[in-house]
C-alpha cells in the first residue's frame, strides 16, 4: 500500500495528462493554466512554510556538534564541525548544503558472527544523494535555455560541460544518466534494505516515482521519441513573457512531462521536499555553539515583577530601625 498508492498515483497523473491533451484537446489547460497555477502554489506555499518555521522560537542554541568546541587557547577548536562564530556557521552550512557533510558521516550497523555488533562506513547513500541533487540542479539550469531569448553564458557553459562527451546527436547529457541511476538507487534502497523499507511511507515513495517519471519522459523526449522542440520553446517563452500561446503539434509526451513537473512544483511546499528551504533553517546546523560565551534570552520570557531588597528596605526601614535591625541606607 505504501508503495502501490504513490505508484498508481503517478500512473494516473500520466494518464490524466495523456487523456487531457490527446483526447480532450485541453492544450491550453495543460500548457498554460496548470503551469501558472503550479508556480503560484510553489512560491506562495514555500514562503508560507518558511515563515511558519521562522515564527517558531529557538530559545536556546541547539547545534549538533561533531568536534572540539571553542575552549582554552591551547585546545584546538574544530571550527567547521563546532563553530562558535558566524563565519564558522557559514562554512558549516556551505559544507552541508553543497556537499551533504552530515550524510557523509552515515554508517551502517550490522550483526557479524553472532551477537557481535559492528559499524562500518556507508557512503553509497551520500554518493547517490549527491549525484541526484547535483544532477537535478544542472538539469534545472540547462532547462533555463527555454526561458531566455538570449541564453545567458552560464547556461551555455553548463550545457556544454554536461554534453562534453559528444556522444550521438542530440548530444548525450551525463546528468541524464546520473539522475536516472541515482533515483533508481534511492528507490531500490527503500525496497531492499529492511530497516529503511520499514520506515518508508507513501510520502517517501511518491516524490521518487514522480521524479523518476519526469526524468524518464525527459530522456524519452530528447533521445527517442522527439517532440517539436521549437514549439516547446515558443510555449515557454509565451509563459514567461505573460503572453501565453500554445503552438500546434508539440507532442503529447511533452505535456505529460510538463504536467508531472507542475505536480512536483505544486506538491513541493506540502511535502518533505521542503528540505530545500528547511536545510537553511535547521537550528541544529545554523547556530553557532556559543551557549557559554553569549547570554541567550528565552524569547517568550514575560516580564516578571521582582521586589528587590532595596525596595523591601524602603518599605520597612523605620520598623527595621526600631527593631534594631541593620539597614544599608540610613
Amino acid at each position: 500500500m505504501r508503495v502501490l498508492f504513490p505508484f498508481f498515483t503517478v500512473i494516473v497523473l500520466v494518464l490524466l495528462a495523456f487523456a487531457g491533451v490527446k483526447m480532450a484537446n485541453l492544450h491550453f489547460l495543460f500548457g498554460v493554466i496548470i503551469p501558472y497555477a503550479a508556480i503560484t502554489v510553489f512560491i506562495a506555499g514555500f514562503i508560507y512554510r518558511v515563515v511558519g518555521w521562522g515564527r517558531s522560537p529557538v530559545p536556546f542554541r541547539i547545534p549538533t556538534t561533531c568536534g572540539q568546541m571553542e575552549s582554552f587557547p591551547w585546545i584546538k577548536q574544530n571550527k567547521l564541525e563546532n563553530p562558535s562564530t558566524t563565519l564558522g556557521v557559514i562554512g558549516r552550512m556551505l559544507l552541508e548544503v553543497l556537499f551533504f557533510r552530515s550524510l557523509f558521516r552515515n554508517i551502517k550497523t550490522e550483526f557479524r558472527e553472532g551477537p557481535k555488533f559492528s559499524y562500518g562506513s556507508d557512503k553509497w547513500l551520500w554518493m547517490a544523494g549527491l549525484a541526484f541533487h547535483w544532477s537535478f540542479l544542472i538539469i534545472l539550469i540547462r532547462h533555463l535555455r527555454f526561458f531566455f531569448l538570449k541564453v545567458p553564458y552560464l547556461i551555455h557553459v553548463t550545457e556544454s560541460l554536461d554534453s562534453f562527451l559528444q556522444i550521438g546527436a542530440p548530444l548525450f547529457y551525463i546528468t541524464d544518466a546520473l539522475i536516472l541511476g541515482a533515483v533508481t538507487f534511492l528507490v531500490l534502497r527503500r525496497f531492499l534494505i529492511p530497516q529503511v523499507k520499514y520506515i518508508s511511507l507513501a510520502a517517501d515513495y511518491f516524490p521518487l516515482f514522480l521524479i523518476l517519471t519526469i526524468a524518464a519522459t525527459g530522456v524519452l523526449m530528447r533521445y527517442f521519441s522527439k517532440v517539436h522542440i521549437v514549439g516547446v520553446k515558443e510555449l515557454a517563452m509565451g509563459l514567461v513573457s505573460f503572453s501565453p500561446a500554445v503552438p500546434e503539434g508539440i507532442g503529447v509526451l511533452f505535456y505529460i512531462h510538463l504536467f508531472l513537473v507542475c505536480v512536483l512544483f505544486a506538491y513541493f511546499p506540502f511535502s518533505k521536499l521542503m528540505h530545500m528551504g528547511g536545510v537553511f533553517l535547521s537550528p541544529t546546523r545554523n547556530l553557532a555553539n556559543n551557549n557559554r560565551a553569549v547570554r541567550h534570552i528565552n524569547p517568550w520570557n514575560y516580564p516578571v515583577h521582582v521586589h528587590t531588597y532595596e525596595e523591601y528596605e524602603d518599605d520597612f526601614r523605620e520598623k527595621m530601625k526600631k527593631a534594631g535591625l541593620p539597614v544599608e541606607k540610613e
Partner: peptide
C-alpha cells in the same frame, strides 16, 4: 528565493518573443 524562481519572468518582462 523569489528572485531566483521568477528570474525568467523578470528578465522577459515586456519583451516580445
Amino acid at each position: 528565493f523569489v528572485l531566483l524562481v521568477t528570474f525568467p519572468f523578470i528578465s522577459n518582462m515586456g519583451k516580445a518573443s
